[in-house]
Design a binder for these strands. Structure first.
Lengths: 128, 128
DNA sequence: AATAAAGTACGAAGTATTTCGTAATTAAAA
DNA sequence: TTTTAATTACGAAATACTTCGTACTTTATT
């Protein structure tokens, strides 16, 4: 119980993505990372990260001149959140529809398919 | 080429979901459907559907007193778009990670599991 | 200590989305 | 044909999200 709902916005997700990937970073580095894709003002990134800190998505610690920010939420929890949103928002809650569409459209390798099949068999075993 | 990007908002998606599921409907019915989950004013639904019509997400035809609205975009295209976004944006492109997380967290029924397994076997058969 | 550089805080404007009230229109019923 | 009920159109307020300028603070350099 007590599972709080995590719901980063699109831009927040972008920042989380960077921090999950590269580890804790100061604003400057995150901003530079973002700028590889598109122009983003420094204070834009800063403000967003401050908001995320208030929302509890990021933690920060004083480090020399400024702050270093780190993700405060788990990648997996966030994945689950987005997955649920997709599942219920677009697939009407049908996991099998979702799964079949994923598998159908992304030439999944033999090995991956096998892995998934085994996983399903394991799940089937549990519901005795 | 020429694949236009379809990007319904959250609320628009909810309406599309209903229409994909139940077929073309008048505003009233869509609104009633929405109200099963949460209170939504009739004119709220109406306005949204009008906007979606302007954006080209819905078509409508005069039918008796009012209009009947139908989805103008394909369920599968929209699903695929959101799925890709999730897969690459949050799951680093790994379909099996995504699939296993879906199955692991949503007590998928025996029947669904069986259906998926059969689907995988069918896919395996194709790569002779 | 004075200056410069780096970083932060704050506020607010710009944009998109969601919501709904009210007035006008249409079609059916009386 | 008048009245009533259903439906639509319009506008605008409420909310959420994104963006950035400016002024303040802190730390390093001279």
């Amino acid at each position: 119980m007590g599972n709080k709902v995590i719901k980063p916005t699109e831009s927040e997700l972008e920042i989380l993505q960077i921090l999950w990937e590269k580890g804790p970073l100061p604003v400057k580095d995150v901003n530079e990372e973002q700028n590889k894709g598109k122009e983003v003002g420094y204070t834009t990134t800063l403000k967003l990260m401050q908001i995320m800190n208030e929302k509890g998505f990021l933690t920060r610690s004083k480090e020399g001149r400024g702050h270093v920010y780190a993700p405060a939420i788990e990648k997996d929890d966030t994945r689950q959140q987005y997955l649920d949103k997709l599942l219920f928002g677009v697939f009407g809650g049908s996991a099998s529809n979702l799964v079949m569409q994923v598998l159908g459209n992304h030439k999944t390798s033999e090995d991956e398919l096998k892995e998934i099949k085994e996983y399903i068999e394991k799940l089937e075993g549990e519901n005795v």
